[in-house]
Design a protein around this nucleic acid. Structure first.
Lengths: 345, 345
DNA sequence: ACTTTTCACGCAAACGTTTGCCTGTTTTTT
DNA sequence: AAAAAACAGGCAAACGTTTGCGTGAAAAGT
């Protein structure tokens, strides 16, 4: 009851059986007689025996731990994804090891290294914005540690990943605004270096042309996602000869910056300018002026799918159905969610 | 270069020395000759040898892992604390195992159990709101696993903890408003069941009486922290015979709800009503109307101190300076932070 | 040239669990 | 009643590393 936890050995000694018998009894192995089995289990219970996970991991050469590397825990998207990963993993008796790269490539490399050394069974990664070399992922492959990428996917062949298709949401966003009667719709996009920017732009263009509207490239402005950058971008659009009555922004933060700026400029956000953005963060429920709709990327679902895939990979590995023949490529469709709570209750 | 990682045994065999020599050489043990040492290190490097953490943990009976149990990862306070814990732990070569209780007592108990079984060396906990029994913490004590509580502290004797003193911040908050010329100051508090509510109330009262102002209990209203609850609380205060010109709220969310409601009621938030709250969340930087100041609780600092304490405990344990003579009780002073960015740039 | 010390390294046990293989006993089959 | 099969359990190795103790050989002391 006090000091060190009970071991299988002690149980064996007390019961005058061998350790192997105890081990098998606790696993309900059929070759152990029912009476012995019960005796062992009873004593184990009484002693409060708990298997030493460390010893098991060591013995089996696997840790029943999956590593997760994300850019920032404080971002709502990732904490939601983590929750999903935890839930999924716990159900299958896996433990989750979380680490943040803070969007720093060097840190990411260190973490991958550390995860490899702490012998996680598999890895879930959303890569840092700045990551430009991918050798550290190759290393994992060499060590036979399966990796599933999610949300932020590196441009590599032959990888497992789950990502969100931004195009559908983008199209929905533009369509939504068109239906609302807007005819000049701007886009405050992210930096061109981000893949996410490209997807948003594609969707925007596709929606415009599908609706037989002339697509005006000058209505698309990039920004660096900071508050100042957003202000500059908005100023640019407002000065446009076909001043937009609605704007799609790269994410909710950009929308919020833009809204703040617009309000300071005295623009009527109910009539003269509406925003639609990406992310659908809970934060917008606290705003008195918020985007009228936001494209949801389903972080929980993405996390869940990614974890499912990884666990599947691990179980096939256990059955040595190794040498993957195919790669999982799961696409979650984004979806426009109207912000019902906006400015009303 | 390919399949399984290199082991100490292989190095030993290749170099025709014993495994113990290799082990010691890699640890730069003085009893190993310098030439052998270099030979070993060179080969280890060449083979890409990495010690098997699993084996080491098993051998040493410790995991170099500290567990962290928090209510919600998505709350900014906790994700900041986690970042601090991670940083602190990594510096000392510890790994951090994170789990969320979702403010659910049962889940918390399960997690404590799981952490114990996965043999974490120590535990950092911020207890769930609903937790009312504390037997699971006693168990950790029995198994000799040190625990440091932070932020949300259970009412127990003889525990290590780091917490934040709300009273100083509360006093500062009220003083701040008094200096700004407000004479009637309301308090929208949390539920009476929360210890945090009591502290805020204490501070509020202390500040009022210290300033020789009559303290009016009817200017304090409780709320359940929801949007509706907040509206009702605000309505109550606005109907007060001495209608307050400033209000202190339990946290930033309550402030935001109240502000939203006040704006809908057409109240001028620049002149007629000001808010001060607790938490100092980054979210308020995105608001066009936000609390004019917020009481910072320094989550990063709290996490850091808590981790420091735990690591210290673990190192004394290693030196078997066991049987703690004293308990760490660290108090971080809260501090009022003016919201400079509010409504201006 | 002898003993004593220091040096550099090897031996082997230990950590807790799992698992392939072997052995003795009981039950079933013919 | 003898042979085969089924049952119950034990033996021992293995996983990779650390570490107390032992031991030759070289260096130092007398």
């Amino acid at each position: 009851m006090t000091g060190k936890p009970a071991t299988i050995k002690e149980i064996a000694k007390i019961l005058n059986v061998s350790v192997s018998t105890v081990s098998r009894a606790l696993h309900k192995h059929p070759t152990i007689g029912i009476t012995t089995q019960l005796k062992v289990q009873a004593l184990a219970e009484k002693l409060g025996y708990e298997p030493n996970q460390n010893a098991i991991s060591f013995q089996k050469g696997k840790t029943y731990t999956i590593g997760v590397i994300i850019p920032e825990l404080s971002e709502a998207f990732f904490s939601a994804a983590i929750s999903a990963i935890e839930d999924t993993a716990y159900k299958r008796n896996y433990t989750v090891l979380i680490a943040q790269s803070h969007d720093n490539e060097e840190k990411e490399i260190q973490l991958v290294e550390k995860m490899k050394n702490s012998r996680v069974d598999g890895l879930l990664i959303s890569v840092a914005k700045t990551t430009s070399s991918f050798a550290h992922f190759d290393m994992l492959k060499r060590f036979n540690i399966p990796v599933v990428f999610f949300d932020r996917i590196p441009p590599l062949k032959n990888i497992h990943y789950v990502a969100c298709n931004m195009e559908t949401g983008s199209i929905e966003a533009v369509n939504y605004l068109l239906q609302k009667g807007h005819r000049s719709i701007g886009l405050i996009n992210g930096p061109a270096t981000l893949a996410a920017s490209g997807e948003r732009k594609e969707g925007y263009i596709k929606a415009m042309t599908k609706n037989r509207l002339k697509f005006d490239p000058s209505l698309i402005v990039g920004c660096n996602l900071t508050e100042e950058g957003t202000r500059a971008a908005l100023d640019g659009l407002l000065a446009h000869k076909r001043r937009p009555s609605a704007i799609v922004t790269f994410n909710d933060y950009v929308s919020l910056y833009a809204i703040k700026h617009a309000r300071n400029l005295g623009i009527n956000l109910d009539k003269d300018l509406q925003f639609v953005s990406y992310a659908n963060l809970p934060i917008i429920n606290y705003m008195d002026y918020a985007p009228v709709a936001s494209v949801e990327q389903f972080p929980y679902l993405q996390g869940q799918k990614a974890a499912d895939i990884l666990l599947d990979l691990l179980s096939r590995k256990e059955q040595s159905l190794d040498e993957v023949q195919a790669y999982y490529n799961v696409i979650v469709e984004s979806q426009l969610i109207e912000n019902k709570t906006r400015n009303s209750y």
